[in-house]
């Protein structure tokens, strides 16, 4: 009995630790802002307060616009970043892994080096470039600088390296050219990995904060994450129930993506789908 009890207890504790903050947000969103501000938050949701969701979705709150709009911006940004990263890193990894050309390894190491230069580090120069291109306060400016990805390139390269040489050679003998091979063999065979990467990249894009804050000052381009921060005013008037409702709403899309893609996600991370 004890053999099972301890692991169970540990797992339960971990689940509570992860779930409690979310539950507090859900419960808090239905209660009165003043009660929350006093720290008298009840753990039981007040069903009468559910209208707050409709309220934030359509009208937002004092410091920020309607949440539906922010959700749309966030979803658009996360999608473009995730798909853009895949669209860019898949061919790069393909080139670096399967073709011999001058400075191949140089190219690979240059890509590798950018791992050490995430957006936060190159914030100022990137802003300068965007500014010169007149892309400040545009959707392109919001997403484009985040699309290049060393991580995805490296992960794809690992996936491709695991593909048996004989499979590549069989395709060559069958007469599949480079593009055909990519489309007919490589992408289907790495499907699970692509799905797994999509999930990770989507969440990464969704959670962006610093770059959107800097590049998009137009309220129309506020992401949900920015929106939440804007709602928390410096004065005491913060409507905490609205903040929590927005946080809960902001949680739903990434969770949905993870749940929808879970099957491929787990497969891609664990077995590599040979």
């Amino acid at each position: 009995m004890t053999g099972r009890f301890i692991p169970h207890a540990v797992l339960t504790l971990a689940v509570l630790l992860f779930a409690l903050p979310i539950w507090i947000a859900i419960a808090g969103s239905t209660q009165d802002s003043a009660v929350i501000a006093r720290g008298e938050l009840s753990l039981i949701p007040d069903l009468a307060g559910l209208g707050v969701y409709r309220d934030v979705l359509l009208h937002g709150s004092a410091g920020a616009g309607p949440v539906w709009r922010a959700l749309l911006v966030s979803a658009g940004m996360a999608l473009v970043i995730a798909l853009g990263k895949i669209a860019l890193s898949l061919p790069s990894a393909y080139a670096v892994t399967f073709f011999r050309f001058p400075f191949r390894m140089t190219a690979f190491w240059l890509i590798f080096l950018t791992l050490m230069l995430p957006v936060e580090v190159r914030l100022i120069p990137t802003f300068q470039v965007m500014s010169n291109l007149d892309l400040i306060n545009s959707f392109t400016g919001l997403t484009l600088p985040l699309v290049a990805s060393a991580t995805a390139t490296l992960l794809f390269r690992q996936t491709f390296l695991a593909i048996p040489d004989e499979l590549v050679e069989a395709a060559r003998m069958d007469g599949a050219g480079p593009l055909r091979f990519l489309r007919d063999i490589l992408i289907p065979v790495s499907g699970a990995n692509i799905a797994a990467l999509f999930v990770i990249l989507f969440v990464y894009g969704w959670n962006q904060y610093l770059w959107p804050l800097l590049v998009a000052t137009d309220p129309k381009l506020d992401t949900v994450v920015i929106g939440i921060v804007k709602m928390i005013g410096l004065d005491t008037a913060t409507e905490w129930n609205k903040v929590m409702a927005t946080a809960v709403l902001a949680l739903i899309p990434p969770v949905a993506v993870v749940l929808l893609m879970q099957r491929w996600f787990v497969k891609g991370l664990t077995e590599g789908d040979k």
Partner: peptide, 11 residues
Amino acid sequence: MVFQNYALYPH
């Protein structure tokens, strides 16, 4: 060519 590990397209 017939390969030792068959090299069939898995998908």
